[in-house]
Design a protein around this nucleic acid. Structure first.
Length: 925
RNA sequence: GCGGACGUGGCGGAAUGGUAGACGCAACGGACUUAAAAUCCGUUGGCUGUAAAGCCGUCCGGGUUCGACUCCCGGCGUCCGCACCA
C-alpha cells in the first residue's frame, strides 16, 4: 500500500458486461482456443454432451458447459493439448413440430436456433474450438453416418426385421425399448402401442457380453451408471430344457416344447407349463379351439398398451396339452397359455414352480393347481415347511426332489444340468417339435409378410440353441440377455435418411457409396400426420443401382441417437470430407478423457455410443473400444415454483418475495396479487420456474453465473437456483476486483527475497495451500470445495492487506504480489473474464488464459510446529503444540503435563495414551 | 417386488475412522452515511450459566473401536433406476 493511494472505499466497480465482451473478442482474435491436431503435448479431450438446438440455452446448459470449461482451462494451464469442441444434436421431432405448428421449415428453424444458441454460448466465455463445430443435420455430417450404416450392413451389424415395435401414436413413430418410459413415449408422453413393422436394427445384442464385461474397465465412471447399464443388459444364466409332449393332446402332433429357466433346481416343484399368447404352439392350439382363440384375443386387447400389461391380473387358459416331466415320463404337466409370459424373452414358454416364484404362485392359487416346496430354508423343518401366499426365493437345501434332496441350490442346478445335457429324447417318441420351423425369436418374423430377401447377408437367428439335430440333448446351458437389438427406423422427415433402396427384383440394395449422401428433399409438406418423405411425390422413386429397374427409396430415417453415437469421434477431424474419421487422428484423441452430461443419458446415449465405437472399430474407422474413459454426471438446476390464485404457473422474474423462513410471501411484481410458493423442482417450461441465462448474464455477467453454478452444491447433485446465491456470487466478483486492485497498488521488489519474515511467510503459506487444494479439487471435479478454498484464500489475503498500516516490507510486498498472481490464476478457469481483467491490472501483458498453472512450493505446505487436538476418553478437551518432528514420547509428556489432563486424571496414571502422529492424541483415563 | 443412493445448524453444504458444522447464504449487532445502498468489523447448532465452563448434538436402536457423520447389524424416511425377463 503506497502513501499516495490510500484505501479507496469507492473503488471502481468491475463492469462485467463491458469487460466480458472485450476479452471474448481478444481471445477470438488471437485464436487461443483453436486446437491443432499436430500439437505434440500430451492430449486431453474434454467434452460436454452437445445440445439439442431448441432455440435457447437453459441453466442446465450453463452448469454443464461451465464444468467442462473449467476442466479444459485447467488442463490447458497444466500443459496439455486440449480438445474442447462443440456441436449440435440437430435432428429430431421438435423441428417437425415447429414446422407443423408454425409453418417454418425444419431446416430454417434448426439453423436459426443454432445461430441464437451459439451466440448465447459465446457470451458465456467458453474456451471452445468453434472451428470444429458440427451439426448432425448437415449433409456433410450425415453423409458419413450413411457410409457407416452401409459398412455396418456389410459387416453384419445391421439387420432388417419384421418385428413387434413400440409405436408412439402421437409422434407417429417407432420407439426403442429404451425410449419407452413407464409405458409412454419418452418425448410425447403418449401411451405406447404394439405394432408389427419392418425395422432396421443395429445388432447391439451381439455385443451384450462385451458391453457388460467392459463395464469393469470403466473405473472413472460413476458406479451408479455402470450398475444401470449392467441391469439393462440383464445377463442371466440358465438352461434350455425340452419337454416331451403327449402328442395325443397336441393340435398337430407336436412332440416337444422348449422352455428357458434359471431355476432348473426346482424342476420337481413344477406344477404347470405356460406359453406366451403369441407362442406358435398356442397359436396352433387356438386354431382348433375357439375358446382358446378368444382368450388369446382377450390378452392382446388388454395388451395394446404397455401400461395395461403392467397392471393386468394374471390369467391363464388350459390348452389341454400335457407335457412330460423330463425326469419322470409318467408325470404329466398341464400346458396353459398365460398372459404374463413374454414371447420375446427366452423361448416364450416356461415351466411353473409356484413354491419358489411369486408369479407362478399367484397363478396356481388362482387356478387351484397347488404347490410343492422343493427348497427348504436352513433352520426350517422340511416336514412342516409350507408355502401359501408368498413364494420362497432364498437359499436352502433341496427337499421333495428325489435324487436332489439335501443338495444346495447351486449343487442341484449343476446336477440337473449335467443329467439333462447327457440325456437324449428317444427318436421314436420325438415327433415334430412344437417350435420347429415356427419358433419365434426376436430376429425372425412371426406374422405378416415375410421380409424381402436380402442380397447382403444371411439373416436369421444365430443362437445355437436353434440348431438342433435328432440327437440333441434334453437340455443345454444358455445365457440370455435382456438387451434387445437397437431398432433405428423412424417414420420421420427430420432425420438421417437410411441409404438403401428397395427393388422388387433385387430386394434391399445399398445406395452406392458414390451416391452418398442421400439428402433430404427440401420441398416437403407437414399438413398431415405421418412421414412427409413417404408422401413426397418424387423423392422416393429411384432406379435400382443393381438392375436399373424401378425401385423405391427407404423412407424411414434413423433414430437421432445414431447421430449422437459418434459425434465425439467426428470432432477429432471434422474436416475430413472423404471419411467419418481419420483413424490415426481419432485414435490419438480418443477416448474422451472427461465426458460431462446429465444422468438421464446413463443408458440410452452412453450404451449406444459404446456399441457404436465397437462397430466403428470393426469397420475400420477407429481402433479403440470405449469412447469415454471418464464420465461425470452433473445434477440438475432446480428452482422454487410459483402459482397464481388462478392456478397458473408464474415465472420467477415476475415474482417479488418478502420475508424469510415461514414468513416468506410472494406476490406478482406488477399487480401485487399474492402468489403461492410451491415446491422446488427441476427448471422446466411447463412449470415456468426457469431463469433465462441471458437475463442473468446481462445483469451480472457470465462470470457470476459460472461461479454460482459451481459453488454451493456438489456438482453431481442438484443445485437450487436462488437470487441470494447469485447476488452472493456477484458480490464476490466485485470483492475480488477490489482485492486485486489493492494488491496491484503494492509495489514490491522484482527479485524474489532470499528470506521471508513471519507475515510474508503466512501469506505465502495461505497462497500455496490454496494452490494445492484448488489443484486437487479441480482435478477431482470437486468444484464446490474449490470455490470454498478460493474464498478462504481471498479472506486470508484480504486480512493480510488490511492489517498493513504503513508501507509493507519488501519481503511482504513480494509475497502479496505472488499471492495476487496465484489467486488470479486459481479462479481463472471459473471466472475467465474477471481473471483477464485482474491479470492486466496486476501489470501482466500476457493473457491469463494462456498462462501456465502456478507451481506449488511443497516446503510451504509443511508446518514447523503442529497443534494437536487432545482428547480425553474420545472427547476433545485441549490442544497441544509440539515441534513437527516431535516423537511419541515427547508428545505424550507434553500432553500429560497439561492442566486439563492433570485435572481429568486426578492424580492417577492414564490407562493408555494413543498418539497418532500429525493427527491427534487420546488419553484414556 | 428387485436393485441403488442419500439422511449433518434457519438453508446449501465441509469433514483419508481422529478437533463435527470448513466455505457460502440468510439473520442479528456494530462502524461509515443527513439517510439508504454498497462496503467493513463482529455474533450465529441446542441447553445451563453474568462468566469461566459444562452438558447434549450428524434420522432412530444396537454393535465394533482408545476414538464413529464415517465401519457392521436392524429399523424409519426421502429420492432414483428397473419392473410379469422365467
Amino acid at each position: 500500500m503506497t502513501a499516495e493511494s490510500p484505501k479507496n472505499q469507492r473503488a471502481e466497480r468491475y463492469n462485467a458486461r463491458e469487460a466480458e465482451a472485450r476479452w471474448q473478442k481478444t481471445w477470438d482474435e488471437q485464436g487461443i482456443y483453436a486446437t491443432r491436431n499436430d500439437d505434440p503435448r500430451p492430449k486431453y479431450y474434454v467434452l460436454e454432451m452437445f445440445p439439442y438446438p431448441s432455440g435457447r440455452i437453459h441453466m442446465g446448459h450453463v452448469r454443464n458447459y461451465t464444468m467442462g470449461d473449467v476442466v479444459a482451462r485447467f488442463k490447458r494451464a497444466m500443459g496439455h493439448a486440449v480438445l474442447h469442441p462443440m456441436g449440435w444434436d440437430a435432428f429430431g421431432m421438435p423441428a417437425e413440430n415447429a414446422a407443423i405448428d408454425r409453418k417454418v421449415h425444419p431446416k430454417a428453424w434448426t439453423y436459426d436456433n443454432i445461430a441464437a444458441m451459439k451466440k448465447q454460448l459465446q457470451s458465456m466465455g467458453l474456451s471452445l474450438d468453434w472451428a470444429r463445430e458440427v451439426a448432425t443435420c448437415d449433409p456433410a455430417y450425415y453423409k458419413h453416418q450413411q457410409r457407416m450404416f452401409l459398412d455396418f450392413l456389410q459387416g453384419g451389424l445391421v439387420a432388417r426385421e419384421y418385428r413387434k415395435v413400440n409405436w408412439d401414436p402421437v409422434d407417429m413413430t417407432v420407439l426403442a425399448n429404451e425410449q419407452v418410459i413407464d409405458g409412454r413415449g419418452w418425448r410425447s408422453g403418449a401411451p405406447v402401442e404394439q405394432r408389427d413393422l419392418y425395422q432396421w436394427v443395429f445388432k447391439i445384442s451381439d455385443y451384450a457380453q462385451e458391453l457388460l464385461e467392459a463395464l469393469d474397465t470403466l473405473d472413472r465412471w460413476p458406479e451408479k451408471v455402470r450398475l444401470m447399464q449392467k441391469n439393462w443388459i440383464g445377463r442371466s444364466e440358465g438352461l434350455l430344457v425340452r419337454f416331451m409332449l403327449d402328442s395325443a393332446t397336441t393340435p398337430g402332433g407336436e412332440g416337444e416344447l422348449e422352455i428357458f429357466t434359471t431355476r432348473p433346481d426346482t424342476l420337481f416343484g413344477a406344477k404347470f407349463m405356460a406359453l406366451a399368447p403369441d407362442h406358435p404352439l398356442a397359436q396352433a392350439a387356438a386354431a382348433k379351439n375357439p375358446k382358446l382363440a378368444e382368450f388369446i384375443a382377450e390378452c392382446k386387447r388388454i395388451g395394446t398398451s404397455q401400461e395395461a400389461i403392467d397392471t393386468a391380473e394374471k390369467m391363464g387358459f388350459d390348452t389341454g396339452i400335457r407335457a412330460l416331466h423330463p425326469f419322470d415320463p409318467d408325470w404329466k404337466l398341464p400346458v396353459y397359455v398365460a398372459n404374463f409370459i413374454l414371447m420375446d424373452y427366452g423361448t416364450g414358454a416356461i415351466f411353473g414352480c409356484p413354491a419358489h416364484d411369486q408369479r407362478d404362485l399367484d397363478f396356481v392359487n388362482k387356478y387351484g393347481l397347488g404347490n410343492t416346496p422343493v427348497v427348504c430354508p436352513d433352520g426350517q423343518d422340511p416336514a412342516t415347511f409350507v408355502i401359501t401366499t408368498t413364494a420362497y426365493d432364498g437359499d436352502g437345501r433341496m427337499i421333495n426332489s428325489r435324487f436332489l434332496d439335501g443338495m444346495t441350490i447351486a449343487e442341484a442346478k449343476e446336477d440337473v444340468a449335467k443329467r439333462l445335457e447327457n440325456s437324449f429324447l428317444p427318436p421314436s417318441e420325438r415327433g415334430r417339435s412344437a417350435a420347429e420351423g415356427c419358433r419365434v425369436g426376436v430376429n425372425e418374423p412371426q406374422a405378416g409378410p415375410p421380409p424381402p430377401p436380402s442380397p447382403l447377408q444371411g439373416e436369421g437367428d444365430e443362437r445355437p440353441a436353434q440348431v438342433r439335430s435328432n440327437n440333441a440333448p434334453v437340455a443345454q446351458r444358455q445365457v440370455n440377455y435382456r438387451l434387445r437389438d437397437w431398432g433405428i427406423s423412424r417414420q420421420r422427415y427430420w432425420g438421417c435418411p437410411i441409404p438403401v433402396i428397395h427393388c422388387s427384383t433385387c430386394g434391399t440394395v445399398p445406395v452406392p457409396a458414390t451416391d452418398l449422401p442421400v439428402t433430404l428433399p427440401e420441398d416437403v409438406a407437414f399438413d398431415k400426420p405421418g412421414n412427409p418423405l413417404d408422401r413426397h411425390p418424387t423423392w422416393k422413386h429411384v432406379k435400382c443401382p443393381q438392375c436399373g429397374g424401378e425401385a423405391r427409396r427407404e423412407t424411414d430415417t434413423m433414430d437421432t441417437f445414431v447421430d449422437s453415437s459418434w459425434y465425439f469421434a467426428r470432432f477429432t477431424d471434422p474436416w475430413n470430407k472423404d471419411a467419418p474419421t481419420t483413424p490415426e487422428v481419432a485414435n490419438r484423441w480418443l477416448p474422451v478423457d472427461q465426458y460431462i452430461g446429465g444422468i438421464e443419458h446413463a443408458i440410452l446415449h452412453l450404451l449406444y455410443s459404446r456399441f457404436f465405437t465397437r462397430a466403428m472399430k470393426k469397420t475400420g474407422h477407429l481402433d479403440i473400444d470405449e469412447p469415454f474413459a471418464g464420465l461425470f454426471t452433473q445434477g440438475m438446476v432446480v428452482h422454487e415454483t410459483y402459482r397464481s390464485k388462478a392456478g397458473d404457473w408464474v415465472i420467477p422474474a415476475d415474482v417479488t418475495i418478502e420475508g424469510m423462513g415461514d414468513q416468506r410471501r410472494a406476490h406478482l411484481t406488477a399487480t401485487g396479487e399474492p402468489v403461492e410458493i410451491g415446491s422446488i423442482e427441476k427448471m422446466s417450461k411447463s412449470k415456468k420456474n426457469t431463469v433465462d441465462p441471458d437475463d442473468i448474464i446481462g445483469a451480472y455477467g457470465a462470470d457470476t453465473a459460472r461461479w454460482f453454478m459451481l459453488s454451493d452444491s456438489p456438482p453431481e447433485r442438484d443445485v437450487i437456483w436462488t437470487e441470494e446465491g447469485v447476488q452472493g456470487a456477484w458480490r464476490f466478483v466485485q470483492r475480488l476486483w477490489r482485492l486485486v486492485g489493492e494488491v496491484s497498488e503494492v509495489s514490491g521488489p522484482q527479485a524474489r527475497p532470499t528470506t521471508f519474515g513471519p507475515e510474508a511467510q503466512k501469506v505465502r503459506k495461505a497462497a500455496h495451500r490454496a494452490l494445492a487444494n484448488v489443484s486437487d479439487d479441480i482435478a477431482r471435479l470437486r468444484f464446490n470445495r474449490c470455490v470454498a478454498h478460493i474464498y478462504e484464500f481471498a479472506n486470508a489475503l484480504s486480512e493480510a492487506i488490511g492489517s498493513i498500516e504503513t508501507l509493507p516490507s519488501p519481503d511482504l510486498a513480494w509475497a502479496l504480489r505472488e499471492a495476487g498472481d496465484i489467486l488470479v490464476r486459481l479462479f481463472a478457469p471459473m471466472m475467465p473474464h474477471l481473471a483477464e481483467e485482474c491479470w492486466a491490472a496486476l501489470g501482466h501483458n500476457s493473457l491469463v488464459a494462456t498462462e501456465a498453472w502456478p507451481e506449488v512450493e511443497p516446503a510451504l505446505l509443511i508446518e514447523n510446529t503442529i497443534t494437536l487436538p487432545v482428547q480425553i476418553n474420545g472427547k476433545k478437551r485441549a490442544d497441544v503444540t509440539v515441534p513437527r518432528e516431535a516423537g511419541k514420547e515427547e508428545i505424550e509428556a507434553a500432553v500429560l503435563a497439561l492442566d486439563t489432563v492433570q485435572k481429568a486424571l486426578d492424580g492417577k496414571s492414564p490407562k493408555k495414551v494413543i498418539v497418532v502422529p500429525q493427527r491427534i492424541v487420546n488419553v484414556v483415563a
